[in-house]
Simulated scan of single mutants.
Amino acid sequence: MSRFRSVKKTVRDILADDDWQARLAELDGFRPADLVPPLLNLRLDRLETVRWRSATAFGLTAARMAEASMEKARVIMRTLMWYMNEESGNLGWGIPLFMAEAMVNSGRIAEEFHKILVSYIFCDEECDGNFLDHPELRRDVYWGLVRLAEYRPELVAHGERFLMVGLDDPDAYNRAYAARVLGLIKAEGARTRLEALKDDPAGIRTFHHREILDTTVGELVRAALDDLG
């Protein structure tokens, strides 16, 4: 069995385990560089739980890499950016989740790359953004912005006006996540718009506190309003 397949099997076994959080420490026995390719592969796994958990594991792995060599961490983050580029021929599914988790776990990575993540929702030429036309891929970006705003809201606040646009997104996930971020960055100017969405019944299935959660747009909007106080 190749090194890649061997590591991937071990990592997948950990992430598929009901006790996966306790077992994450086992990943410390691998070099970060050996974990990155299998984790990128597992973001497309057949199991929903493994797909989500691979992002969590990547964030921890990227932080270890940044601590040892920030230059190597930059290379990995640039690789993720390349995955998001149409010219790469790659699928961007899950990549924004990986980017966000890396920034949650490493302040140095966050400082250098947060503007890239936010730029994927920029929707006008003035901001020279990288707006993603595909609504389902934007979901991953908005979810990533929720994660980043939970820990480093000041790095997301400059995207406020584009998050406001997200409240009108036809995709329920994007409305819900945009609302949640606006609450986390204390965007008081969004209060009226959020009040109008607080009873939105559209359902979404997300990953929250490392658990899969079924909720509604309205519930996340009300959480955002609670954050505004």
Rank of each mutant, 00 (worst) to 15 (best):
V118N: 02
R46D: 13
E86P: 10
E26K: 14
Y173W: 10
A22F: 07
R210M: 11
C127R: 11
T79G: 14
A66I: 00
H209S: 12
V217S: 02
A66C: 04
A33W: 04
G107D: 11
D133R: 13
L47A: 04
M81E: 15
P37W: 15
D34K: 13
G229V: 03
R222N: 05
A176E: 02
D133G: 08
L39C: 12
D168A: 07
G144R: 00
V11Q: 03
P201N: 05
H114C: 05
G189R: 13
A149Q: 00
V11C: 04
L184H: 12
L145A: 01
V36G: 08
L60M: 05
N85T: 13
E211R: 15
D227Y: 06
E86W: 09
G59A: 01
E26T: 13
F4E: 09
F4P: 03
P170M: 08
D45Q: 03
L35P: 14
N85S: 12
M103F: 02
D34N: 14
M70F: 13
T56K: 05
D34H: 12
A62V: 02
E26M: 14
R78I: 05
A25W: 08
V141F: 02
S6F: 08
L155I: 06
R46F: 08
F113G: 02
G159V: 09
R3V: 12
R193N: 10
D168T: 08
E160I: 11
D124W: 01
L167F: 01
A66M: 05
R74Y: 07
R3S: 13
V156G: 07
L213Y: 07
R31V: 11
E26C: 10
G229C: 02
G107S: 09
D171M: 11
S119D: 02
S88Q: 01
R12Y: 11
K72Q: 09
E86D: 11
V36D: 09
D214A: 08
D226Y: 10
R180K: 12
R74W: 09
F207W: 14
L197Q: 08
F98T: 00
L24T: 09
A157W: 13
E48S: 09
L145W: 00
R175P: 05
W20K: 14
E211I: 14
G94C: 04
E219D: 11
M84T: 04
H209E: 15
L60S: 04
A100G: 00
G94N: 01
K8C: 11
N85F: 12
E86I: 07
T216N: 01
W52P: 00
L40G: 15
L42C: 13
F58I: 02
G189K: 14
V36L: 10
D226I: 08
A176P: 00
D226W: 12
G203C: 07
F162W: 14
I14S: 04
C127H: 07
N90E: 14
D128W: 01
A179K: 05
A187Y: 15
A68Q: 12
T206Y: 07
E101Y: 10
F162T: 15
R191S: 11
Y151F: 06
D133C: 05
L197K: 05
E67P: 03
D140W: 04
E71M: 09
